[in-house]
């Protein structure tokens, strides 16, 4: 039960304004309802871990949070402004394009651009979307690459990197947009076990720096260590939520106990 020793004390209970707020969020693919009404607020600086069995809607939830999946019901608000189901921002609501500039995403399978060098992967977003000039974007990218320990790989192509290196570049690419919030979708699931640590190290550092993050993960020990709150999803609903201590050490429901027991071995 090594993970229980890592559980950190509950986060500061003082309420902060939510960066993102979901109300009654639903997502259906045809007749299959994957999210059945999610109410969730993510305050600034929170590290929210989303756990649950496969098919419970975790990935769909996190993909709805930057509109890669467009919800079929309910509302999504970013910094108190409703997010519209269109790309451009108009009066009264912000568009998906604006939302995504502020909410970074890191994918399970990295999704680096194979035809670009590491440096180009990181700078293309800021240059094309934010209109940053090349020199400024490169300086920022080099700074980020140094933070993730890959400054020497600036001119390498993704094909020549290990999985762990790819994922660190992907994190740097998301950070290059200077996001207010980062979504991490099972970012260590595609990695060889010995490479998981280097990626978790980078995320831990981001958490320490106060980055608001939502992470879907199967790394229970890591969730216990870095998360300020954990939600357990099942059947498209939030079945339980609370501090890592409450959820991971004192699960209320039989289902959550059953789910966790698989990770404790």
């Amino acid at each position: 039960m090594a993970i229980l020793e890592q559980i950190k004390t509950p986060a500061d209970p003082a309420p902060t304004k939510p960066v993102m707020e979901l109300r009654g969020l639903k997502k259906a693919f045809g007749t299959l309802e994957v999210l059945k009404g999610i109410d969730l607020a993510v305050p600034a600086g929170e590290v929210l871990a989303v756990i649950g069995p496969s098919g419970s809607g975790k990935s769909t939830l996190i993909r709805c949070m930057n509109m890669l999946e467009v919800p079929t019901g309910g509302t999504l608000a970013f910094r108190d402004q409703p997010v519209a189901r269109r790309f451009r921002t108009r009066a009264g609501s912000i568009g998906m394009g604006t939302l995504r500039r502020h909410v970074g995403m890191v994918f399970q399978h990295f999704n680096l651009f194979p035809h670009m060098t590491v440096l180009d992967n990181i700078t293309r977003g800021p240059c094309v979307v934010l209109g940053e000039n090349r020199a400024k974007a490169e300086a920022h990218a080099m700074d980020l690459l140094a933070q993730v320990g890959l400054a020497d790989k600036r001119d390498a192509y993704p094909a020549h990197l290990s999985g762990g290196q790819k994922q660190r570049v992907a994190i740097a690419r998301a950070l290059a947009m200077r996001p207010d919030m980062l979504l991490l979708d099972e970012v260590t699931s595609a990695l060889d076990p010995e490479l998981v640590g280097e990626v978790l190290g980078v995320i831990r550092k981001l958490a320490d720096d106060g980055m608001t993050m939502v992470l879907v993960t199967h790394e229970m020990g890591f969730a216990a260590e870095v998360a300020s709150r954990v939600i357990f999803m099942e059947g498209g609903m939030i079945a339980e939520e609370g501090t890592p201590d409450a959820i991971l050490r004192n699960p209320k429901s039989e289902r959550l106990r059953g789910f966790l027991s698989r990770f404790h071995g």
């Binding site: 994918f107 999704n111 293309r124």
Partner: peptide, 26 residues
């Protein structure tokens, strides 16, 4: 790969930007 378009959209690129920067070159 579909993930390429998603990664481009995730940094805020429009459909045209995604096409010209990421999809068409590949």
């Amino acid at each position: 790969d579909k993930g390429q378009a998603e990664a481009a959209q995730a940094v805020g690129m429009s459909q045209v930007q995604t096409m010209t920067n990421v999809i068409l070159p590949q």
